[in-house]
Computed example of a mutant assay.
Amino acid sequence: MNSRINKLHNLMQEQGLDALFIQSYENRRYFSGFSGSNGYLLITSGYCGLITDQRYTEQAKEQAPDFEIITHGIDPFVTIQSVFQDKEISTIGFESESLSFHLFNKIKSLIQKCEWVPLTTELLKIRRIKDDEEIKVIRKSIAISDQAFKDLIPLIKPGMSEREIAVELEYLMGKHGHDGPAFGTIVAADIRAALPHAVPSNNQVKENHFLLIDYGVKYQGYMSDMTRTLWIGNPNEELKGYYHLVHEALERAVEEVKPGMTGHDLDAVAREVFFREGLEGYSLRGLGHGVGLQIHENPRIVLQSEEVLEPGMVFTIEPGLYIPGKAGVRVEDVVLVTNNGCEVLTNTPRHIHI
């Protein structure tokens, strides 16, 4: 944990800050280890404080041993104000994209001696390189989702509704030991798969068409994310053509991952497959996203992204084609950037035929 605090100290030095105020769940957990739902971090060059309520006092002591644990009463602002008053702080950075307008104005009115400096992506950029412990937990999260999907396959039959399949899958994910779904499970049969974020409905799985399933689990705070498009029976040649193009796009992108390229560069590798066939207009504007304590975080593998890939980054590669009235196809793996390429962390077979 000390290495993460050192990164904050470096950020403070670069930005000319005396302190950082952190309240978002993901950043609070990443920098302190505390997983409770309520808390605020105050970081200076020589101090680390965690303010929470009495529900979490003992948990915070256990999870955040490098921090002074301060328990607030009914009004947390009184405690926050007193903690600030004990410190020599002139400039303080805050999470401008997650701190609510109301909370910011309330704290600022109580602590008027400080200049409040808005931060945007600075903390996210620190989190984009995963350490060994994070990678270990992400592997476990993916293993749970792989096993749940393996158990689901024998249960899928034509005539089942999308909702039935989603319920079965979420039950199996829980059975294998997750903290909850990483996001709303997507199950879309036949032409409904052309909706990239389809909500499961009463629509039934049909013979000779596709079934798209996109889901993930949360394990010890870290997410997994996977999509598979299954063949149900024997889809026609047009549908198979879309399917094979998406798989080609994924395979080419995985082969081309390397440190030093940008998110835009990698997106272009997969996108070129669709341009070649005149189908690029049916794809989305991005190829993938970072995965960690949030289901969408840095790096962004999208058009015009100048973010440079580095060893230790973990992200999805998920090309897709979404053709209204005909079909939707997406296939998604999670990869880890290595020194000379990438490792595919997802272990579920890409082609599944029911």
Rank of each mutant, 00 (worst) to 15 (best):
Lys108Gln: 05
Asp86Leu: 11
Met226Tyr: 04
Thr44Trp: 13
Leu284Ala: 09
Gly341Glu: 13
Val78Ala: 11
Glu332Phe: 06
Val273Cys: 11
Glu95Trp: 04
Arg128Val: 13
Asp151Leu: 10
Arg285Asp: 06
Tyr56Glu: 09
Thr262Ile: 07
Met226Arg: 07
Ser82Glu: 15
Glu307Tyr: 10
Ala193Asn: 10
Glu297Asp: 13
Leu11Gly: 09
Val205Phe: 02
Gly260Met: 09
Cys342Val: 06
Leu169Pro: 02
Glu133Thr: 04
Met261Asn: 10
Glu238Ser: 06
Gly159Glu: 00
Lys113Met: 02
Pro118Tyr: 12
Leu99Thr: 09
Arg55Gln: 13
Gln112Tyr: 01
His247Tyr: 08
Lys140Val: 02
Tyr219Val: 02
Gly241Pro: 00
Ile213Asp: 04
Glu95Cys: 08
Val217Met: 00
Glu122Lys: 14
Ile135His: 08
Leu266Gln: 07
Asn38Ile: 15
Ala327His: 07
Ala327Val: 12
Asp18Asn: 06
Glu310Cys: 15
Ile186Lys: 03
Val334Pro: 06
Phe67Leu: 11
Gly260Thr: 15
Ile144Ala: 02
Val273Ala: 10
Pro319Trp: 11
Leu303Ile: 02
Val335Gln: 04
Thr79Ser: 10
Glu133Ala: 09
Gly174Asp: 02
Ile92Asn: 01
Tyr56Ala: 14
Ala270Cys: 03
Glu14Leu: 11
Ile111Gln: 03
Ala166Trp: 00
Phe104Leu: 03
Ile89Asn: 05
Val329His: 10
Pro196Asn: 07
Lys125Phe: 14
Phe34Asn: 10
Glu134Ala: 15
Asp53Arg: 12
Leu41Cys: 15
Gln220Ser: 08
Arg300His: 08
Pro200Thr: 05
Leu309Gly: 15
Thr262Ala: 07
Phe84Tyr: 09
Ala194His: 15
Lys326Asn: 12
Val78Trp: 13
Ser161Pro: 01
Ile156Phe: 01
Asp131Ser: 13
Ile317Asp: 08
Thr71Asn: 11
Pro154Asp: 09
Phe94Ser: 05
Asp179Tyr: 03
Phe210Pro: 00
Phe275Asp: 09
Gln294Gly: 12
Val302Ser: 05
Leu8Val: 13
Gln23His: 09
Glu168Pro: 00
Leu42Lys: 06
Tyr222Ser: 06
Ile5Ser: 14
Gly180Thr: 01
